[in-house]
Design a protein around this nucleic acid. Structure first.
Lengths: 69, 69
DNA sequence: TAAAAAATTATCGAAAAACAATAAATTAAT
DNA sequence: ATTAATTTATTGTTTTTCGATAATTTTTTA
């Protein structure tokens, strides 16, 4: 029962590295890593917005609700 | 260029009112209203999680990235 | 159409969490 | 083995949620 952040799939599709993504989005590599590895407890819409913009995708491509766990 | 929170569609599908939803999710009606009317600047995953649980849906059913605006 | 109910907006304070900056540690790539 | 990239950790600042509450507005109902 958790929200899963899955950036890896879209990053692979767009062939973009964590460093490039953090740079394009405008957050530090450290903070992207926290988000990417499900250590974050919230997201600002401004950040989610930039992620969707750079990755050209929807929030649903990044966020998933899981019942188990 | 913004993240749109659209709870109305799923609320209509589940035939649940704002009052009932805020009650089931465990947040005040005031805070649900802020979220529901795009006045929030972030969401905690714990809140998004409970919304998905109660509405039996995915984050993508609630959050949308819009290029225009 | 008047009264009641529901929803929205506003304000305050407190707790939570993002985020930058930085450095250290780990992992991956060359 | 070296180098580069990523992850983890720490600290301090700023942002924002969220509860509580009240006032206002909108919607529903009698």
């Amino acid at each position: 029962m958790a929200i899963i952040v899955n950036l890896d799939v879209m990053m692979a599709k767009r062939k973009i590295s964590a460093g490039e993504l953090s740079d394009a989005v405008g957050i530090t590599p450290a903070n992207l890593s926290i988000l990417k590895n499900n250590k974050a407890k919230a997201v600002r819409f401004s950040t989610l917005c930039r992620l969707c913009e750079v990755l050209d995708c929807q929030p649903g491509d990044i966020l998933e609700y899981r019942k188990e766990d």
